[in-house]
Nucleic acid binder design. Structure first.
Lengths: 165, 165
DNA sequence: TGGAAACCCTGTAGCAACTCCAGAGTCAAG
DNA sequence: CTTGACTCTGGAGTTGCTACAGGGTTTCCA
C-alpha cells in the first residue's frame, strides 16, 4: 500500500509517517518505479505500535527502546517494565505538580472576585507583589513540564480523505 | 544594575532576559558606553512579575495580556479574571487527561508483573495488539499537552554564580 | 488522448520558550 | 599588561510534529 493508505489506516498524517522514517522509527520503505513508498502489513503493525505508545504520551526515545525489545524477542523484558514504571512516575509527578498549580491559581483567583479597575485588581497586585516566590522552580523540576503543548497547538489528527476504494 | 545581577535577583538566566527583551515583554534596556544593558528597580519588578506568571505556567502571550493591564491601571480588570479562569480550565483539563493516562498506563503495567522474555512480555503484546485504540486522540485534544516538556528538558534554573559582592 | 484532480516526492521553515554556543568586545583586579 | 569574569550579537538546537513550495506521478473521466 501507499503512504496515504497507511496514514488513513493508522490515523496518522502522511507527514508524520515520513518524519518517523527520517527518525529511524520506521525502516526505510521500498519504492515503486515512480519513487513512491510502499508498505506492507509489517509496517502497519509497527506504526500502529508507535501510535499506541504516543497516545500514551511516551517520547520517541522511549518508543525507540520498546521497538528495540520487540525486535529482539529472546531478551528479558525487564527493562520494558522499568521503562514503563519510569513513565508512570513521570505522569504521576506531573499530576502532582499540576494539582498544586491549580490550587495556587484558585487562590490567586480569589483575590479578585468582581470587575474593578486594573489598579485595584487583587490578582494583578498579587502577581506584582509576590506572595508566590519568584525564583522557586515549584513547577517542572522533573524532566517533564508544560501545561500548554510545545509546538503542537491543535492536534486534530485530520487524516486526509482519500477516495474510497 | 547589569544583566547578570538582574538575572541573579530574579532567578532567571541571562539568556532568558535577553529573550524576553527580544519578545517585547521587557522594554529595550538603556545601555552603558560599553553597550552593556542597564536595569533599574522597575525592570526588576516587571521581570519578577513575568517569572511569577511563568511559574504558574502561563504562556508568554497570556503574560503579555496581563502586562498590558498593569500598564493601563484605569481600565477594568474583568479580562484579567477571564484570562485566569481560562488558564485554570486549561490546567484542570490537563489534570483530567493525565489521570486517565495514568490509569491506562497502570492497566498496561499489570500485563507483565515479572521479567520474562520479550516475546512473552504482556506489555509489548498489549501495545502491539491494541486493546488501546490506535487513532483515538484520547490525550491532548485540547490545546495543551505534553507529559514531557517541549524543548526544555532539565529546567534546572541554575542562576550562574556571580562573585559575591 | 488529453487534461485535471488526486496523490506522491524532497527540502525547508515554523511552533514555544527557552538554552547553549562561538567569536568577539568590555571592564576590573593584580 | 595580562588574566578572568562579565557582556555583546547572532545563530543553532531542543520536541514532535505540521505546513508549505515547487515539483513529479497516477488515475480517472470525458
Amino acid at each position: 500500500m501507499k503512504i496515504g493508505q497507511l496514514a488513513q489506516q493508522t490515523g496518522t498524517l502522511v507527514d508524520t509517517i515520513r518524519y518517523y522514517e527520517r527518525e529511524g522509527l520506521l525502516p526505510r520503505a521500498a519504492r515503486t518505479e515512480g519513487n513512491y513508498r510502499i508498505y506492507d502489513a509489517v509496517h502497519l503493525e509497527r506504526l500502529a505500535f508507535i501510535r499506541r505508545c504516543r497516545s500514551l504520551d511516551m517520547t520517541l526515545d522511549e518508543i525507540r527502546v520498546l521497538l528495540c525489545f520487540r525486535d529482539r524477542p529472546l531478551e528479558s523484558c525487564e527493562d520494558v517494565n522499568t521503562l514503563l514504571d519510569a513513565h508512570i512516575n513521570h505522569v504521576a509527578d506531573r499530576i502532582r505538580e499540576l494539582l498544586q498549580l491549580e490550587k495556587q491559581l484558585l487562590t490567586l483567583r480569589e483575590c479578585c472576585r468582581d470587575g474593578r479597575q486594573a489598579a485595584d485588581c487583587g490578582i494583578l497586585n498579587e502577581l506584582s507583589h509576590g506572595a508566590t516566590e519568584v525564583a522557586g522552580p515549584s513547577v517542572s523540576e522533573s524532566h517533564l513540564s508544560a501545561t500548554h503543548a510545545g509546538g503542537r497547538r491543535h492536534v486534530v489528527q485530520r487524516t486526509q480523505e482519500q477516495g474510497e476504494d
